[in-house]
Nucleic acid binder design. Structure first.
Lengths: 342, 342
DNA sequence: GGCTGGATGGGTAACGTTACCCACTCCTGA
DNA sequence: TCAGGAGTGGGTAACGTTACCCATCCAGCC
């Protein structure tokens, strides 16, 4: 390894500005008790020396100005929308987001990822779609400001940002029914078994409820795989092999819908001629003309921005729990149409 | 903020195991000079107390067991393949990857992102597709083990992982020419102006070279936008407005190709009937049947794994620079076909 | 018997920053 | 005139870990 030249420290800055390290620290943190003259003098010294605070040292005593983000996986394009919003919101305050993949399905891996952030002393955690037990979230929230995205359980310890998945799923299923479909299948995530608070569970349950309410209980068909392209693909293959096969598929996520489109196509069927497909998330790619997927929109950027704001508030001292719910809308595109004649 | 209960520290472990903190530290680091009995005793105490090392404190003295990953943006699905490979490789050694978005185009933002990792005292940096000046990389490499993905400049200070973009671009363009196309356009990234070592530059230059070699210099048509969906979309709209319009488009990345497909579709043209489209990266989505994009494959997972291995080696003490080059292959799918009759 | 050296364990001073206190100077109002 | 407080600056002890060094023990050898 190359020889590391010594970093410029707060002591160097203090010496150069002819003040105490305490004074420099105060300027850095915008703390109370600093005159304008002092501020200018210190800032000048910082610029002169090219000083940057050493984050690890900060972490030993106070803040790190770091937000930890836990994502199941970066492959999901919808997460990119969310992160854009988050970054927007927190970067003004000098905060930096660091992202870690949680894996999403393996509880041990998920726990390791969350520990990794805590051990790195982040000031707050933004956890997207956690699959763990609620108790684990509560426990984490005791140590660190926490905002959770996409879970419906209520907690007094952390904030929740979510879309109303019941409304969203209803929109999608009602849309398909409205087009005249009866054999509407659903691609679910097998994590539904873990908790009723998971968005996956709610979307699946709502699908069944709406079907039942329209007298279509007999046509309920669920492939329980995962909210990924592979999951959508495998689930759709399974659904297509049933007899009679469905005329429409409501995939629980856009990624799964992508896999569904592929499977339909591969089976020599057309969308929406033979099968209509609807997704959920309205990630930006789904709007592209060659894909044109009907999807439930839940403004990821807004959710990300809100999560950022809530985290900053919590870091600032708020303890009361907040719940921010977005009402989704349906964006109709070319992947859904009335069923063909039988 | 909730009252944080004091963390379990190395001192607690030492007291519980009735040994010194030094001994515990040695066990944690697998350092020399620890008997088997000591090891067992300390491990038992660690388990009893549920101790986890405090990373920030570690960072003050030694390693953090953290690899910092700089990505232009998480939206690019190809990066997911790379990260999967990296994670695979480093997690065995107890390392954790943390990701930061570099923005990719704004030099100041990119610099901030790289600083953020250095300030967080990562043991090594894996920088995907940096757009900054080579000097900045060299400087970073002086302080921190560095592996760069996707740049062609040689350095004695850091390792490079790349695919042979000249071969890749050649494969794509030759393929289109072989199909009978003459008016083949290219969607480039406007960053090409910054350095001849950027993969964008090489792909664009190779396109022009191959066209020229086949006597098609007069048909060279480049839309210089960016390697994103928006870029591909805007670039393609521009290309389609030319007269005569191209019969094939070689997009410099799959994401750009996605945008291109959308624009072609929106113009009421078909792929590959009216226009053939080829991409680059062969991210997993491109293989899905409803997309079926012809693309240049460069085994992202292998590149990620290799990057991880090289970083661990560097952290372990290697100083000689390594250059790992993957030879790309062409994966032909339904988005390319011979041109229609004029 | 004394010397050497490997194996093992521990003591201690950093690492760079901030929280917590205290000191000093003015100014205000009784 | 003086107490009290606001405004400003600094001294110092942590935070949890590890690098570096030293102490001890014991086997093996001259």
């Amino acid at each position: 390894m190359a020889i590391r030249q010594r970093r410029v420290t707060i002591t160097d800055v203090a010496r150069h500005a002819q003040v105490s390290t305490t004074a420099v620290s105060k300027v850095l943190r915008d703390a109370y008790g600093v005159s304008e003259a002092m501020r200018l003098k210190v800032r000048a010294a910082i610029d002169d020396l090219g000083y940057r605070p050493h984050n690890a040292a900060r972490a030993m005593r106070g803040r790190t100005f770091t937000i930890g983000v836990l994502l199941p996986h970066i492959r999901n394009p919808f997460f990119a929308d969310i992160i854009d919003g988050l970054t927007d919101e927190i970067s003004a305050g000098g905060y930096q987001a660091i992202m870690v993949q949680s894996g999403g399905r393996d509880p041990a891996a998920e726990r390791r990822a969350s520990d990794a952030l805590v051990d790195r002393q982040v000031d707050g955690v933004f956890w997207v779609a956690p699959a763990c037990a609620r108790a684990q979230l509560e426990q984490l929230a005791e140590d660190t400001p926490l905002v959770v995205l996409g879970r419906h359980d209520r907690s007094s310890r952390y904030d929740c940002v979510l879309d109303d998945d019941e409304v969203g799923a209803e929109l999608a299923v009602e849309h398909l029914i409205g087009l005249g479909h009866r054999r509407i299948a659903h691609i679910a995530d097998s994590l539904v078994s873990r908790s009723t608070a998971l968005l996956q569970t709610i979307r699946a349950a709502t699908y069944e409820r709406v079907m039942t309410e329209h007298g279509l209980a007999g046509h309920i068909a669920v492939a329980s795989t995962s909210y990924t392209e592979e999951g959508g693909y495998a689930g759709t293959r399974e659904l297509l092999s049933r007899d009679p096969r469905p005329t429409a598929i409501f995939a629980g996520s856009d990624q799964a819908a992508f896999g569904a489109l592929a499977a339909v196509h591969e089976a020599g069927l057309t969308v929406p001629g033979d099968i209509s497909v609807a997704g959920y998330d309205n990630a930006r790619v789904t709007g592209l003309a060659h894909i044109a997927l009907t999807s439930v929109d839940q403004d990821g950027a807004l959710m990300g921005r809100t999560a950022g704001r809530l985290l900053l508030e919590r870091i600032g001292g708020r303890t009361a729990a907040v719940r921010f719910s977005v009402t989704p809308t349906l964006v109709t595109r070319r992947s859904t149409a009335p069923p063909g004649p039988e």
